[in-house]
Amino acid sequence: MEPATIMFYFFEGAAALSAASLIFIRQVFYGALLLIVCLLSLAAIYILAFAEFVAVTQILVYAGGIVVVILFGVMLTAKIGEKPLVVQHGNLFGGILAAASLLAVLLYGLAGHDFTPATAATTMATQNAVQETGFVMMRDFVLPFELAGMLLLMALVGAAVIAARTKNNRAS
């Protein structure tokens, strides 16, 4: 077996295991740490799927940004010196029924379909992949790119305004 194949299955297993153990985790902090494991394994899988730029963005934005923000949220919504909050489970029957049936339908559909490409698969050029991605982004996708920048600015300003404390809080 090639090393790349071993790495692919290893990271697939890591992503699936960390996601599955998120179900049984009762503390939000450990949940955030498991989310980092899952997202980094997904970044490795992206590299093996010839999507280097997406992988780097995944590491920078998800593992570096979103998980840190989630950890801040966990720490800001916990009282200092108190035992960590144990997350309760609710809606067990409906949730397990919905998720299991969705998984069964998806796996059934995947098993019945052959996804091997019709034409002889030419592998992607890995030589200038990131450069090519940059060209495509700034040439074909420049309008969505700029709109995404505006959306990000609006969302972050809105988040700062919402999270800012005002004087008449009920609790404080």
Binding site: A19, I23, C38, N91, G95, A99, A100
Partner: peptide, 12 residues
Amino acid sequence: ILFSVGLLLVVI
């Protein structure tokens, strides 16, 4: 698998 786990987390 990831999508089903995410759905399960959101619900339960």
